[in-house]
Design a protein around this nucleic acid. Structure first.
Lengths: 232, 232
DNA sequence: TGACAATGACTGACTGGTCAGTCATCTTAT
DNA sequence: ATAAGATGACTGACCAGTCAGTCATTGTCA
């Protein structure tokens, strides 16, 4: 946002003879890494640190100085990897979200009942998202979405619409197979995932007041949709 | 967030003789109001303006100057009503939330089936919260909760725990009456309200990508829980 | 192979704009 | 008359973004 400045005078440039000496904050002792490798590591460190800070403080209240310190990097270094704070936030979301989606959408062999499939999916979601840093990221997206339409758009395209479509397909299959009776459910796959989302939010906001057994809740919810498990 | 500052010197206070002439932004022409009334009106105007701004920008990115301008008040006036930005946010949440809770918990005569009761409740929630400014406030609480533990606590105490308890009571009643079969549902009243919460969030984040017929979704969800409506 | 030069990644002090909170002064109801 | 209410210019802390300078790594030549 800052305007281009005049050349900037030198103001006693000699005084900075000290510096160095403490540089390279004590991190990787690996000396044999190539430039490219090192760069990638640093970028990853910045992304990690940024995620931590953004989750803890939100976009506006996060200081780049803090991100830099946490990443063990100078502030200027951040600008070698990201254009500005805003695009750092956007890229961060992309960087973190994409692997999760690909991992979760890699559904296991479609053997067995639809319920088994959904249960596997729920179980993965539980491990990978609910109560983890990634769950906090989801909350962060809900929080900052309105101020970052591009993030909300991205999240809708890459996560929500895909997830909804996948769930709808599963529901339709289950209806065809007679595993689900309520036909209208296919119109609102949101209903299928709603408790999982609530669990994510609950864990970040209320867990310390009233811990929630997300796993059991999801089981009960699936019982509701598919009918109680027969104890065969 | 700013720390308490030292007294701050006065620096040429006399130079400000001009001022006035345009003050009192053109608002209420009512001259006959008492001090107390006027004060209450101003406070309300500030609360409204603050809610609008906080919802649009989040806590950290909201400027008190903007709130003052929107409320038609000078910045200093805000400090006659609130200690600082943070406590303004906290009081704002209390001020806005309480009436909603009391209105919603004023359930209609307990005649008819539990499903009718729940449906009435859902219908009120739909009108009063989903897709309204108050719905945005819920999203705001989710967004800022982690940075305002006192707000999250308040919200948990006044809204969440009460709502959960009320829903649990209804579920147990419905189970006793045979309206609900799934007995475990009483352990997780969250499941009952989850789609409503999702609807709130959906409307603020994704409505423009994919509008959601919240009313119909809630109906389908209730069909799922209570069984499809008999067409008697 | 060893020495020197070129490269560009990295650093952090610095700048300028921003904004929460203050307070001397003015206004108005009582 | 006068005290409570209201105003908005002002202050100082704060922080995103910049850039001159440093030095580890890589490339080149004898």
């Amino acid at each position: 946002m800052r305007m281009i400045k005049k050349p900037a005078k030198a103001t006693t440039p000699a005084t900075r003879a000290n510096t160095k000496a403490s540089a390279r904050a004590g991190n990787d002792p690996a000396p044999a890494s190539s430039r490219a490798t090192r760069a990638a590591e640093r970028r990853a460190a910045i992304v990690d640190a940024a995620m931590e800070e953004f989750i803890a403080r939100g976009f506006a209240a996060t200081r780049l100085d803090d991100i830099a310190k946490r990443a063990g990097v100078a502030k200027g270094t951040i600008y070698l990897h990201f254009r500005d704070k805003e695009s750092m936030f956007e890229e961060l979301v992309r960087t973190v979200i994409v692997p999760v989606v690909t991992r979760l959408t890699a559904l296991p062999p479609p053997a067995g009942s639809v319920r088994d499939l959904v249960e596997t999916f729920a179980s993965n979601f539980l491990k990978e998202v609910i109560g983890t840093r990634r769950g906090d990221l989801v909350r962060l997206i809900v929080a900052e979405g309105p101020r970052f339409p591009s993030v909300a758009d991205f999240y809708y395209r890459e996560v929500v619409s895909r997830g909804i479509a996948a769930m709808r397909a599963l529901i339709e299959l289950a209806i065809a197979r007679g595993e689900i009776r309520q036909k209208n459910l296919a119109h609102y796959p949101q209903i299928l995932v709603a408790p999982a989302m609530i669990a994510v939010i609950w864990q970040s906001l209320f867990a310390r007041h009233a811990p929630l057994d997300a796993q059991d809740m999801l089981r009960v919810h699936l019982d509701l949709i598919f009918g109680e498990r027969s104890t065969t």
